[in-house]
Computed example of a mutant assay.
Amino acid sequence: MPFYVYAEDQPDVADQLMEWCEEHWSYMDRFDDRLILRGPTVSDDGEEHTGSVHVVDLADRAAAERFAREEPFWKAGLYRDLTVVEAEVLLSREPETDVPYTLVAAQWPLSADAPCDAERRGLLGTEADSRLIFVAALMDGDGAGTTGVVAVVRALPDEARDLIQPFAEGLADGRPAALTAQRWERGGRN
């Protein structure tokens, strides 16, 4: 089952991240066949690493927590926060290189009226916008409902947020969805 794992960097750790980069990549190589999406979030100018995103297919929540907590950057104390949430992947396309992308995300309390699987997919439209590279509904641990959204959009943050807002509000059963948007880059070894 897929899990969305987001780790936010501690402030001023760029040099340390570089020191641990090979250990991080070697660790991720062990999961290469299970990684659906991977890559860093970066500052608006693209110069600074701000976090890491992984969507990984693992057996259960315990395996996802282990994946996150055994990651070398986390073990070295370079992350300040971790998010690990079950995800239902609704759309996944291969990202291009050298194209600006934005990671858009939101989380909200579980709604008893959350859309079902078919309705979630329908919120994307029959012909999903070609700028959408990845979209997943974040799920509660029991599969009872939607608790958020994560998307990668081929656009800069403001445009990406505007594109995902109606979809997020549909998932949130019409409630306002406060979206975050930050630059994202395709990750992994070149």
Rank of each mutant, 00 (worst) to 15 (best):
E169C: 09
C21K: 14
D33I: 08
L37K: 01
L35I: 14
P100Y: 04
D129H: 14
L123H: 03
A62M: 12
R34H: 12
V84F: 06
S43H: 12
D117S: 12
T147I: 15
P115A: 00
R120T: 00
A59T: 07
H49N: 01
E119K: 11
G141K: 10
K75I: 10
G46M: 07
G143C: 09
T102R: 02
L82F: 07
F134L: 10
R61T: 11
H24L: 09
A68M: 11
S43G: 10
D129V: 05
A105H: 04
L124H: 01
V13M: 10
M18Y: 05
A76H: 05
A59H: 12
G51V: 03
E88W: 08
R186K: 14
E88L: 11
A178N: 10
A62R: 14
R154D: 08
D9N: 13
E185Y: 01
T102E: 05
W25L: 13
P115N: 05
A155K: 05
F73D: 14
G141N: 09
P157T: 03
E96R: 13
G122R: 11
R183A: 14
R80D: 08
E70Y: 00
K75L: 14
A160L: 12
L163P: 04
E47R: 07
L17G: 00
R175H: 12
R120V: 01
W20C: 02
D142G: 04
D162M: 06
E88A: 13
G122P: 10
D44Q: 13
P157R: 10
D33P: 02
Q182W: 04
R66Y: 00
D129Y: 10
L156N: 00
V13Y: 02
R34Y: 06
G145E: 13
A181F: 08
S130T: 13
D113V: 02
A151D: 00
A128S: 14
M139R: 15
V42H: 05
G122H: 09
V149R: 07
T50L: 15
R120M: 14
G141Y: 01
L35K: 06
V55F: 03
L138E: 05
T102Q: 03
T50G: 07
D57P: 13
E86R: 10
A168W: 06
T41R: 10
M139C: 10
T97L: 12
V56R: 09
M139L: 15
F73H: 13
Q182N: 08
V55T: 11
L132Y: 02
L123W: 02
V135M: 12
E169G: 08
F134I: 09
Q182G: 15
A106C: 11
D117R: 05
E65V: 15
G174H: 04
L110E: 10
L124N: 06
I164G: 02
V42R: 13
A7W: 01
A136T: 04
R189K: 07
L124F: 01
E8D: 08
D162R: 10
R154A: 15
A155C: 06
W108F: 09
R175M: 08
G46S: 05
A59W: 01
R120F: 06
R80N: 10
P11N: 07
A172H: 15
V42T: 14
A128P: 15
L138R: 09
R189A: 11
A76P: 04
W184T: 11
E88D: 15
Q10I: 07
W20K: 07
A63E: 15
F67V: 11
